[in-house]
Computed example of a mutant assay.
Amino acid sequence: MALNPITRRALALTLRQISLQQTAAASSVSKIGSREVVGFGFNGTPCYVDRVDFPMPGVRFKENTPDIQALREKEKGDWNKLTLEEKKALYRASFCQTFSEMKAPTGEWKSVLGLSLIAASLAIWVYMWMKLFVYSPIPDTLSPEKQEAQLKRIIALKMNPVQGISSEWDYSKGEWK
């Protein structure tokens, strides 16, 4: 069966992409060293990550040594024959931390709180400096006497008498409604 040139070219490009993806995957696995790839891994990558929400990394933590290899062979048999130290050594060969070690408090909150307080203090000092040297003084039109005079002028001119402040003034009695 003969393929037309367009189909042949699309098939060739697809095969080339698959080949490149396999090469990239093989090269990333070869960078692991002598550690054993044991699963899918976090996001499908063969890497080691200690995470509580993703407890099964794609590779073992330590590289295979003759001691660990001997324990792995012994592990295939009866686990009752393994000592507690051997079980711990097998665990530490596969994982760096236990769940309790991952969940243990690190004291990081102290540095975060300290830096936050320093930043807040710095912001207050910048505000005070700007208040003294950058901002102009408050205009005298914001004094209570000037504001009262402005309110009287608004009422006298009957500005916005439908919905504004002048609508709340009773002009016949000369007081607020």
Rank of each mutant, 00 (worst) to 15 (best):
I138Q: 08
G114D: 09
S172W: 03
L84A: 12
N4A: 00
M130Q: 15
W176V: 02
K131M: 06
G44Y: 11
G41T: 04
S94M: 10
A24G: 08
L71I: 06
A26S: 07
M102I: 15
E108C: 05
E101P: 04
I118D: 00
S30T: 06
L122M: 06
R35N: 06
N160R: 13
L142K: 10
T106S: 10
R8W: 07
E145W: 10
L151G: 08
T14A: 13
F99Y: 13
I138A: 14
T65M: 11
W109D: 13
S172G: 01
K74F: 09
L15H: 03
A156G: 11
P55Y: 12
Q21I: 09
R60P: 01
K31T: 00
T7N: 07
G107R: 02
I154L: 11
R51W: 10
I6C: 01
Y171F: 03
L151N: 07
W125V: 14
K74Q: 12
E145Q: 15
R51P: 02
K158L: 04
L71H: 08
R35H: 03
D140K: 13
E175V: 08
F54M: 14
Y171Q: 01
S27R: 15
G114Q: 07
S136V: 11
K76T: 10
G114I: 03
D170V: 02
F40G: 09
L71R: 14
P55N: 15
T65L: 10
F99N: 14
R153F: 08
P105L: 01
F99S: 10
V112K: 05
L82E: 00
T141C: 12
Q17C: 02
L3V: 01
P66F: 09
V52I: 14
Q150P: 05
L3I: 02
E145I: 14
L122P: 00
I155R: 07
S116N: 06
D140Y: 11
M159C: 05
D50F: 09
P46F: 05
E73Y: 03
I165P: 14
S116Y: 06
M102P: 12
M56Q: 15
E145Y: 08
Q69G: 05
D50L: 05
P57T: 02
E36Q: 12
K76E: 09
C47N: 06
W176E: 06
